[in-house]
Amino acid sequence: MWSDLCSGLYSYGFNGWQSIGIMLLHLGVFGGMIYLIIRMLIPKSKREDSAMALLKEQFAKGLISKEEFRERKEVLKN
């Protein structure tokens, strides 16, 4: 089965390891495209809302002070 997948690349002078490398490269490009599509589908406001929720949770647990909460909140707004 594996040789059937790579047989087309052998005709171009690639050996087995080079064929695997090319397939991994294509897999990486395909995975990157899927990642970018998902990033574009999730609105930026939703991602920011989760950051604000995390900030509020840290403040509620007492992990950060009131001043630090305000500073970070201003950073997230900009």
Rank of each mutant, 00 (worst) to 15 (best):
M1A: 12
W2T: 03
S3G: 00
S3F: 09
S3L: 08
D4A: 15
L5M: 12
L5Q: 11
L5K: 12
G8H: 08
G8Y: 13
G8L: 12
L9I: 07
Y10H: 13
Y10A: 13
S11T: 10
S11N: 06
Y12H: 06
G13L: 07
G13N: 07
G13F: 06
G13P: 02
G13V: 01
F14V: 02
F14G: 05
G16T: 11
G16K: 13
W17S: 09
W17E: 14
W17V: 07
Q18E: 15
Q18V: 03
Q18C: 10
I20G: 01
G21P: 02
G21F: 13
I22D: 01
I22N: 03
M23F: 15
M23T: 10
L25N: 13
L25Y: 13
H26I: 10
L27E: 09
G28E: 06
G28V: 08
G28L: 09
F30R: 14
F30W: 14
F30A: 14
F30T: 14
F30S: 15
F30D: 05
G31L: 14
G31N: 06
G31D: 08
M33T: 06
M33G: 10
I34F: 13
Y35C: 08
L36A: 14
I37E: 06
R39Q: 04
M40W: 05
M40D: 14
L41M: 11
L41Y: 09
I42K: 05
P43S: 10
P43H: 04
P43V: 05
P43N: 11
K44V: 12
K46A: 09
R47C: 04
R47D: 08
E48F: 03
E48P: 00
E48W: 12
D49L: 07
M52V: 15
A53M: 06
L55V: 01
K56V: 01
E57H: 09
Q58N: 11
Q58I: 06
Q58V: 02
F59M: 06
F59Y: 14
A60P: 04
A60Y: 02
A60C: 05
K61T: 01
G62S: 04
I64A: 01
I64Y: 02
I64P: 00
S65I: 01
S65H: 05
K66D: 07
K66W: 01
E67R: 02
E68V: 03
E68Q: 13
F69K: 07
F69R: 04
R70F: 02
E71H: 05
E71S: 04
R72V: 02
K73H: 03
E74S: 05
E74T: 03
E74Q: 07
E74W: 02
L76W: 00
L76F: 09
L76D: 02
L76I: 11
K77Q: 10
